[in-house]
Nucleic acid binder design. Structure first.
Lengths: 96, 96
DNA sequence: CTCCTTGTTCGATTGTTATCGAAATACAAA
DNA sequence: TTTGTATTTCGATAACAATCGAACAAGGAG
């Protein structure tokens, strides 16, 4: 097995790891369905998990390139990064 | 969020968790590319990881419904369960 | 029956994850 | 400048995951 292939495997595994948490899938669904950006607090309320936990998930999703963020003052808005999904999981968003 | 949706999320997350390990992706690739069943020992040798670790991964893949097993005497043959991939990750195998 | 091969399970280790509440930070509004 | 809102970081905890080698079990070949 060559090294590029190995790196690709690691990258794909990383994306899967990020998605291996039900709450993250839920975050992506409400992002996708609401068709607008969401904040940490909104998600915290909708999913009934603490803000710090949501912040942690936001960071993970962002780090994996699955979401975009836009900061406005102290508020951070999350949206789906369609590009990554198109490249790695083309059918995922439609299946939500 | 209803309970069925929640269960579906858990199930999908479970599949992602199973795939969040580079070696498991590699196992699936060599399964897919070799176009035949593989054994624990073969994989152990090809990936340079111990048999007990491969056995552990085999079990996980099987448990997630991603592979099928066929037992013949003391040898266990693994193959890809296309059905699960078709249902949950229709583009995955082609991308390997 | 004895030996070899295949695979599983066990015990141990090491590292990672999800979660929370509390404290800290950053900014806006009053 | 004080207060309130949004988010992040910290420290702690509890659970889980990947890995190994050793020991074990099951079956085939000689």
């Amino acid at each position: 097995m060559n090294i590029e292939q190995s790196n690709k495997d690691n990258q794909l595994a990383e994306i899967f790891k990020t998605l291996s948490e039900p709450n993250r899938i839920r975050i992506l669904r409400i992002l996708d369905h609401s068709d607008r950006e969401l904040t940490c607090s909104e998600v915290s309320e909708q999913l009934n998990i603490s803000k710090s936990t949501v912040s942690y998930h936001f960071k993970a999703l962002r780090h994996a390139g699955l979401t975009n963020t836009r900061q406005a003052a102290q508020t951070k808005y999350l949206s789906i990064n369609e590009k990554t999904f198109k490249e790695y999981l083309p059918s995922f968003l439609e299946s939500l």
